[in-house]
Design a protein around this nucleic acid. Structure first.
Lengths: 223, 223
DNA sequence: CTTTGTGAATGCTTTCACAGCA
DNA sequence: TGCTGTGAAAGCATTCACAAAG
């Protein structure tokens, strides 16, 4: 889906890029570090953190090594400091304005999900094309017409859009998001989106996850 | 997370195992084939199907090659036949009983999601520990007490459980699911679950997806 | 002449194992 | 002594490019 060379760091610090597999795990480490911090753990070894994150300790150390050397040999990592470094690297020390499009059952759930806010994502608008939903209050926001997207996106400098519409509407929504300057999209609709390659798309397909489980389940049964 | 050697097929047909990356894409091909079938396309080339699925055609052909030779050189694939073969391989020609635990906003959305039913998954029960939710009707099912899990799981031979509870409850729910004989779990709670290694767990963490987007977004901004 | 199926090449990720540092 | 950080090895996944088949 995405090529991103593990460019060795060059003269300037700004060219480094983390391996995608590492990027996908850093949020898990962040979550584990937050949990440790909440139980007043100040310091942890790679082994402890690995257990808390559900990965192997060698993998964890390799991942962290891409960020720099934030540990102390013989001791481990300072929980608060490592947490900050990962958050900074992931870009979640600043906060990001998000719009959610499609306020059906899933859109409701996403709008109400507290995990976004607590991790640096601020939902600034809920949009829906269906006039009957306009004006409805969800999680402290009012559902607004989809065609206000442009104005809202520019006003709040929205760079991330979430699509929670039916599949049939998703491509049009994506086009509109791109037109409004949104350059990252999280797509819950079960369809492939085509967007310019300056735009990042990630997809979450609930039924695909179940199908993957079904495959393994079936194999277990075959013994 | 899971080792699964690409065992070449041996004397008996039953030992084959597909690469995990392939397993994760087959449902996407299935979706694309269904869409083609609905527009009365009878036959398609790897190139057409690849476009519909959003992957490269070489990758698609390699993936399909693990299933066997279902194409015709110079012509392409028969849509209906290929669809059936993939569905069979994925185990979605039979149907699977599913329980959803935790009927908050997300549980509601999952219970109402039509994509499950249409792909071979039958939600047989909605469970919640909160007494105040018992008796509520959601998508044609009544929310029942969590401690009926055992009876329900055995009655319907449930092998897949979906956890949509808060993080704090998730491990207890997982333990109970395992105790009730469930051997595949889809976890929406933002926490690491520990389960016996006979049990498959897949996780979907909504805020992790956003964090990954934020990382790339931040990098784009740094230019 | 078209399009599949697949070895071989390339690139990415994980794992190993240990040198190096506190 | 204990634990990090990292080269080197092993294991997967993707891409290439073409022989084989219709």
């Amino acid at each position: 889906m995405e090529r991103r060379p593990v460019t060795a760091r060059s003269s300037s610090e700004s060219v480094r890029g983390l391996p995608e597999a590492t990027v996908a795990r850093l949020p898990v480490y962040l979550r584990a570090l937050t949990a440790l911090a909440e139980t007043d753990v100040r310091t942890c070894s790679s082994e402890q953190l690995a257990v808390a994150a559900g990965v192997g300790s060698a993998k964890l150390r390799k991942d962290l090594s891409y960020l720099g050397s934030y540990g102390t040999r013989g001791v481990g990592y300072d929980v608060a400091h490592l947490r900050y470094q990962i958050a900074r690297e992931m870009g979640v020390t600043q906060d990001w304005a998000v719009v959610i499009v499609g306020i059906g059952n899933l859109g409701h759930a996403l709008a109400s999900y507290s995990g976004f806010r607590s991790r640096g994502f601020r939902t600034v608008a809920l949009l829906d094309a269906d006039r009957r939903r306009h004006g409805e209050e969800v999680a402290g926001l009012t559902v607004r017409p989809f065609d206000e997207l442009d104005a809202i996106a520019r006003e709040h400098a929205v760079s991330i859009g979430v699509i929670a519409t039916p599949a049939a509407a998703a491509q049009d929504v994506a086009d509109a998001l791109v037109g409004a300057g949104v350059s990252s999209i999280l797509n819950f609709a079960p369809t492939v989106l085509s967007v310019p390659d300056t735009v990042d798309v990630r997809k979450v397909d609930l039924s695909i996850e179940l199908q993957i489980l079904a495959y393994h389940e079936q194999r277990k049964a075959q013994l």
